[in-house]
Write a protein that binds this DNA or RNA. Structure first.
Lengths: 190, 190
DNA sequence: TGTACATCAGTGAACGCGCGTTCACTGATGTAC
DNA sequence: TGTACATCAGTGAACGCGCGTTCACTGATGTAC
């Protein structure tokens, strides 16, 4: 081998990792293939040896970002249940450093306009996150908890977006607080 | 006058109207100034006689879309309170025809990355919508109802985005149902 | 052991295209004399 | 009433730039003999 074994897959993962951060920071359209490859220490031409299109990378980068968040939220949940999840998700770090935050909160509007394949990848990741949240709810049947979990994730995501979109720092803090309070209310109300 | 009185302001409103629909459909970045002006029956060059930049138009188009939604939700609220609002907002029409739906749900992720001026315009519109929702809540002090209203709008917005982003139609319907149920729960829980 | 060839991850130029913005210009109509 | 000029909404060419994708190529190293 001209490159050591595993070299290509390591490169592949590096591109996905770079993309997952930059897409969350700047959006899907604002990040070009050439600049992404440069960030990964490569040139544009090699891109299509790793991905069949930019949309293909988008699918993988979104899934990767959400998988990583799932781990982080899973650890929080193990330590402190729903309240720990929501305090991570609606915390200043997720709001102020979108590259380390939730890909759904950064990209949901754009994902809604992507191809079926991209939305299918997003759907798979979403289902697992919803399961994690549902598992933290103390009340109700499986179906009820699942439905409640969907709404809770929708609220966390929407609230984080609002906290990022407003122009006033104090208001942004209040929005996060409002979201935390409402999630906890939903978590304990049947 | 070479054009009848009010001609220019009518043109201005037409551009804002076209932009408000197309931005909601395709996103801020995907809609170019030239194609927008063509849609309004004009050529690109005249754009800067109406707006000092694309961001300026974005501010106006978002505000215009949210103002119109406010009227629609206000009418619903007058007839049926919070439940009527949420049934409009989380209805199939808003999900399937984003050009007639909520600009926040279509654009929040992108607005979060815009200039302070754009976010300030968004903030002003958001405050009014939150007030409308707060006015429908039966329980709590002014501050409590306001905070609850922020969370409710965040949930409606996030839930609508999730319903648009998933690849499965049945799941999308379930997401809307989950959101309606949770909003109503939040509306009646102190 | 030494040479010829195969492999393949990555390179970089090129394709046509649309982007936001600027600016000298057009041409229809109002006003001044 | 007739002519000259002012006004200004809108035109369209031009600027440099980055976009996603393709493709002939490079060059380091493994394998075959």
């Amino acid at each position: 081998m001209r490159y050591e074994k595993g070299h290509k897959s390591a490169t592949h993962e590096r591109i996905v990792e770079v993309a997952s951060r930059r897409f969350r920071m700047a959006g899907l359209e604002a990040v070009g293939v050439a600049s992404l490859m440069a960030d990964a220490g490569l040139t544009r031409g090699g891109f299509y040896a790793h991905f069949c299109s930019k949309a293909d990378l988008v699918s993988q980068a979104v899934a990767s970002a959400l998988d990583r968040m799932l781990l982080e939220l899973g650890e929080a949940a193990a330590a402190g249940g729903l309240e720990a999840i929501v305090r991570v998700y609606l915390g200043a770090r997720y709001r102020d450093a979108p590259e380390h935050g939730c890909a759904a909160a950064s990209l949901a509007c754009e994902i809604a306009r992507q191809s079926h394949a991209v939305r299918a990848a997003f759907t798979r990741s979403l289902e697992v996150i919803v399961e994690l949240i549902a598992a933290q709810l103390p009340l109700g049947s499986g179906g009820e908890r699942r439905r409640r979990a969907v709404a809770i994730f929708g609220m966390m995501m929407g609230t984080l977006q609002l906290a990022r979109a407003v122009a006033d720092q104090r208001l942004s803090d209040q929005i996060l607080e409002s979201g935390i309070e409402a999630v906890l209310t939903l978590g304990r109300t049947p």
